[in-house]
Nucleic acid binder design. Structure first.
Lengths: 119, 119
DNA sequence: TGCATCAGTTACGTCAACTGCACCAATGGC
DNA sequence: GCCATTGGTGCAGTTGACGTAACTGATGCA
């Protein structure tokens, strides 16, 4: 796990696109956040509401990572109370194809595939 | 994280296909194993060799989960030394579309997107 | 007898992601 | 003054994915 799918601290970059994808969309929440953002720009609390169970801490971290890597833009309005809007960049929007593929797979697959016994 | 992308112990099944997908392809290695299996049937050690860094422990666990959920078949030949072949089921092969989408995204995207500073 | 192979299993430990709770700043309403 | 709101931050603690090392069983080889 030092050159396949871990963080980008020492590894230059895996050749494989799948591995690269996993570099950015790694945790369980990451992909779900992108899914929400695909519906349009969201404020912080809107994302919190849309993702029941996520903590502010986790959401902040994922969002920061996305911003750092150019998947998402963060726009802060100097109002009171503050308003911050997160929006996918064109790069982030290109992830729609991936999410759609995941969706198609999971939805065409029999429900039994998700049960531990397999049927 | 009790009904979005966690295990299938109590949650019936998320409505969202993306969340369902994440139920099965969760860890960093899971997707990479599927990627290798997409190239054809593999023996245990072949998978070990193809995935530098993975431990037998992790590989066993991921493979078991896939078998349990019907993504992969496990064929053990009663030879000495033993030979076990893992192969994707049609269900598993349908994941090719998802992996291809990941690959396309990562490869059309500028390399700078993977650097922490965002380019 | 002892070492090597394959495909694991088991015990034990690490490490990062994630969680919950409290707290902050600045302002509006009561 | 006190509470609510928004968008977080810090600390402590949990979870579980993952890693290392040792071991198994049956056989071939020296």
């Amino acid at each position: 796990m030092s050159q396949n799918s871990a963080s980008h601290n020492s590894a230059p970059l895996p050749d494989c696109g799948v591995a690269r994808f996993l570099l950015l969309l790694d945790g369980p929440w990451a992909t779900l956040i992108v899914r929400e953002l695909l519906h349009g720009p969201h404020r912080f609390t809107e994302l919190m509401d849309a993702l029941p169970g996520i903590s502010a801490h986790t959401l902040t971290n994922r969002l920061r990572k996305f911003v750092r890597h150019g998947l998402v833009t963060r726009t802060a309005y100097p109002e009171i109370p503050p308003r911050v809007v997160y929006e996918l960049t064109p790069l982030g929007h290109q992830l729609r194809a991936v999410l759609t593929a995941m969706d198609d797979w999971a939805l065409t697959v029999p429900t039994s595939a998700f049960t531990p016994t397999g049927g």
